[in-house]
Structures are given as structure tokens and as C-alpha cells.
Amino acid sequence: MLTKEFLSEKLSAGFPELKFEFSEFRDEITVKLSKSFIVTVCDYLKNTEGLQFNYLEDITAIDWARKKERFEVVYILFSIDLKQRLKVKVGVEEKDAKVDSVSVIWKAANWFERETYDMYGITFNDHPDLRRMYMPEEFQHHPLRKDYPLMGHPGDLSLPQK
């Protein structure tokens, strides 16, 4: 079972100069870090003995609406060998909604990042194929943002002629 102490020890051994925020809720550990180091930290998490997070379960974002760091991108990692789970978070500001893509580490990240881009409008640098996942290509909004209404704006999406 992964503990906060073990994780923080491992991470500070690998990245002595970086600051990590740890939180725990219902036995689930979340670690938050600065977005510019996400690729190197993920690479470390995947390839370090005792962590071995070789399986990416999901990538998503949270829209906090009124915070200064409006978005948070969440990576849910799992280790198939050690059966442990970890959530990694990075904060993203609305003006600079760009994060480095982790699809070089896990191929699964490709579609997850496309989905996050579609739903929240966060772009991923060096992504191999960043297109919309679900919505039609001519759609101009990002529906899971809190300022997009549940029913959408009338006329956002076209209907065929009757």
C-alpha cells in the first residue's frame, strides 16, 4: 500500500528542488506540482522502483470557475504490479491554458488529452494529433467549462433541413 511518507521521500529524492503538495482523502493520495515539470515527474513515477505507475487510468480537468488558477489537470495513475493508485494534479491558468503532453510516456494519454481539450479547451504541447474527440469539428465552445450552459446556446450545433 502506498503511503504519503514513502511517496514524498521518493519524490524528494528524485526532485530535491521541486515543491510537492500532498493531500489525502479516504485513503487516496493526491500530489500537486507545477505544470512545467509534469513530463519529467510522470516519467520518474513510471520508471522508479517502488512506484512503477505503468498504467494511466485517466486524464481529466476540473474547472474551478472563480479561482485564479482556473483549471486543474488531473492524472490518475495505477501500478499493475504493485496495485496502487495515485492522483497527480497540475494547476493551469485560463490565460495560459497549455500543458505538456504525457503521450510520450503512456500512449493511452493520446485520447484522454484530446477529450480534455475538447471539453475544457486546454491544449497539450507536442500532442501527436490534437483534434476534438466528441463534438463536431466546427463546434466552437468547450462544453464542460462552467460558463457553458447545460442546454448550450441555440444554434451552436446545426440540424439537417427538414
Binding site: 471539453m119 476534438r132 474527440m133 466528441y134 463534438m135 463536431p136 462544453p143 464542460l144 457553458y148 447545460l150
Partner: peptide
């Protein structure tokens, strides 16, 4: 994909 995107997460 997306031909059956029904907006579950928004709902």
C-alpha cells in the same frame, strides 16, 4: 467518436 455523446458529465 462522439455520435452518441450525450453530455453525461455535464448533466
Amino acid at each position: 467518436l462522439g455520435y452518441l455523446h450525450r453530455g453525461y458529465e455535464k448533466m
